[in-house]
Design a protein around this nucleic acid. Structure first.
Lengths: 208, 208
DNA sequence: CCCTCAGGTTAACGACCGCTAACCTCCCTG
DNA sequence: CAGGGAGGTTAGCGGTCGTTAACCTGAGGG
């Protein structure tokens, strides 16, 4: 239900270009005229689709957080379902779930670089209500990771696990700094490298 | 020569407060009046100390990059000197140098959170000349890490090493997201956790 | 065939922001 | 004890930005 093959609507075009511009030059560094120009209309025409500039940022940030959380919940349910149907675990232990979470986050970071940049950079520019909602989604996402991580490493205390998760997010979200896409190695190689580093980082703090 | 115990000058106050404000609300999100108010003078009084708002950001970013690079060079020279004087390595192998680099970066990230935030967030707001200089310093810093890392893990190819270094920077620079100082664990605990995770991440990609 | 309405346009307003101008006031020094 | 510079102040200018107002146009439906 999240896959789309038909042409993008004007709204979607605007959101995509706005995300790119906000990531490049910051929320306050981009004017509405530029966003309009990026989709071929000019300035105030945007107000037929959004009540204001703030609303575009809000929709982007809520969308990102929600999408990350939804994806993670889906992966978690998948693993539980598989474990239940086989009535005895096996290939779908907590380790496999953790790998699945990491893989999902990497996919997102590699495929939607502007969004991942905005995600931890422009949160404070939101109206209180929106910011609260984004923070709540983010917190749920983190807690989901923390739960899985502590299943893999039961000796890990909760505060340490939470710090570790935040730090690994920092690692995975570093992709925008890895040179523009095309340079350095291919996507699969980068994904594999990030995955191994994330597991290594977790292992170093979990197997104390 | 880098340690100071006397009272901070007005210039230094301004830079410190500007760094905090820029990190909190973004370069374009802070007005000169606010920066002035934060140090007890008002608005245009800042122009007795800086030629403009841009100049404050430039001095901050160049200062950070230079300070990181200088510190790293110092640690590298220290290790080489010690190894040379003992004429036979021992406790000061490449591993010790890598640990020293990690420790230095963590100290910086924990003690100067606003600066580390600005460092990879507001670079694009600089004038071309300044941005070029900052990028050069950053590149040197990265290459220094890459060199040390490949001494520890000789099997590691250069592009992979560079990606790994960038990713570990992302991990170490995640400290601003670990809740405000005072919450969660103490400084030493956090530093130790970050250090182990960084080593773990490197090991996972170096011992392929 | 008109009427509506979605989706544009340009003009313009008000607020804000970086910066300059003009002026003031200590404090230090010859 | 002049005088000058360092370091402030307030007023205000010019430009930019988000937003609104007023108007236009082409496609679909009764």
């Amino acid at each position: 239900m999240a896959t789309r093959t038909d042409a993008p609507t004007r709204r979607e075009q605007i959101l995509k270009e706005a995300a790119r511009l906000f990531a490049e030059r910051g929320f306050h560094g981009v004017g509405v005229d530029e966003i309009g120009a990026a989709v071929g209309i000019s300035g105030p025409g945007l107000y037929r689709h959004f009540p204001g500039k703030d609303a575009m940022l809000a929709e982007l940030l809520v969308g990102i957080s929600d999408s990350l959380l939804t994806g993670a919940k889906l992966r978690l349910a998948e693993a539980d379902g598989a474990a239940g149907s086989r009535a005895g675990a096996g290939a779908t232990g907590p380790e496999a779930v953790l790998d699945s979470l990491i893989e999902g986050h990497i996919d997102f970071a590699l495929d939607d670089r502007p969004l991942i940049t905005l995600h931890d950079r422009e949160l404070d520019r939101l109206r209180d209500a929106d910011r609260k909602m984004v923070r709540q989604l983010q917190r749920q996402y983190v807690e989901l990771w923390v739960g899985v991580l502590r299943e893999v490493y039961p000796a890990l205390a909760e505060p340490a696990a939470r710090s570790a998760v935040h730090s690994v997010f920092g690692l995975l979200n570093s992709t925008p700094h890895l040179g523009r896409p095309g340079s350095v190695p291919g996507r699969a190689v980068t994904a594999s490298l990030l995955h191994r580093m994330a597991r290594g980082a977790f292992a170093a703090v979990g197997e104390a």
